[in-house]
Amino acid sequence: MSVKTLDTAYQVTPSRWSRRNLTVPIGLIAAVAVLWLWVSSLNLDSIEARVLNAEAVRRAVVDHILLAVSATLLVVAIAVPLGIMLTRRWAKPLVPVVMALANIGQAVPALGLLVLLALWFGIGFKIALIALVVTAVLPVLRNTVVGIQQVDQSLVEAARGMGMRASRILRLVELPLAVPVMLAGLRTTIVIAVGVATVATFVNAGGLGDIIVAGIKLQRTPVLITGGVLTAVIALGLDWLGGLAERLLRPKGV
């Protein structure tokens, strides 16, 4: 019963707070500024101008973030309790089954899944959300399980030996010590969610996929680049926030 059965956890990268951490947001803002300057310097034709008007771009960005963040929150709400449950002794036989399912969820192409879901259940925000959750659930789930399992068993035994109940051991010992690994999984989930949210456009759920697909279909490079760059900026920005959370929530002494 170990990390091995679950493959490896998504990497935990411990790093200390420093001024360097501001390079990422500054870089992202600069990238957006350059993009904006470049697009405004172009003579946009009528098609480009229609897709790249401020209001349309703003809505796509908001929808995209909304979709990715909702999916991430849902993943946390599902995967953290499920992961905790899987580390309880009685649930041991379930671990390979649930992990296999989550692995399939990540391995199945998101687009194919989305199309299947759309055929069965129709289109819209909810369907996109379900597809996103299925695709992005694995990192949080696996890292919750691995995070708790990697807690030094001698600590758990010391806690039991002092008369702590299982629920108290979970709350005061196992979870705090699993937090860094769990947050590393959360960051991976966020990045996957932001990336995969681009396919939401195929079920009419909005997002930057609208802009990217328009750019491809209409063969308008500025449109395509705008969608791509903004998606990357959101992914990196949310990942940076995740990294910030990792540093702030990491328990002292670990």
């Binding site: 030094d152 001698s154 600590l155 010391a158 010590l177 328990p251």
Partner: peptide, 22 residues
């Protein structure tokens, strides 16, 4: 009750088992 029993027995293990985050 086992947990009540254990609060009345001091327990020291080789790995010491101090909680690193406390």
């Amino acid at each position: 009750e086992p947990n009540e029993l254990r609060t009345r027995i001091g327990y020291v293990i080789q790995q010491i088992g101090l909680f690193p985050h406390m």
